[in-house]
Design a binder for these strands. Sequence first.
DNA 1: CGGCTTTGACCCGCGC
DNA 2: GCGCGGGTCAAAGCCG
Length: 176
Amino acid sequence: MLTSRFELPCRLQSMSGSNSWPPHSPENENAKFELSDQYFIDDWLEKDPPTFVLSGSPGQNLQLYDASVNESGGTSSQQEEPSSEYMCFDYVLLGEKKEANERFAFKTKSEVEVLDDGFKWRKYGKKMVKNSPNPRNYFRCSVEGCPVKKRVERDREDPRYVITTYEGAHNHQSSS
DNA sequence: CGGCTTTGACCCGCGC
DNA sequence: GCGCGGGTCAAAGCCG
């Protein structure tokens, strides 16, 4: 089942004063972000206030955790299933730390679609998806021989969100 | 010139 | 078999 902490393949790039998510956008190369900030992913759970929180430090993967579960190891039994099917999928895979985390997705409130996750990606396709005005973009890790792919699209119900799906595990270190 | 994006074509699985 | 939807290929173009 769910554990209280998960690692996401996004990283904080630098320190600064902005509270916005994502922490790094191509349009604003010099954007800096406050490390100590926690990024609430509201709407992910139908909880008020949302209890899932992202945190991280430069060079490390961001961590997603359920703030309603206390650190001292107690696994709270009142955890609820995430409201989104995407997150449901994620939590299971990431929570169990599947060695090759085959596939998982997450949703981020973001104006830009390309989140810098520390890897270099090459775009290899773009498709319109049925019942959605937004295209889906296909990326492959540009490191030779690395099997990882990702897919990026806007949430059709709420275009403020970007859905990123990762597939496969990197067979190398991140590039930055 | 090399690496990347763009874009339409192609392929494949699935339901009718 | 056929059409549709989703995923990928690859030629051409773009850009540093």
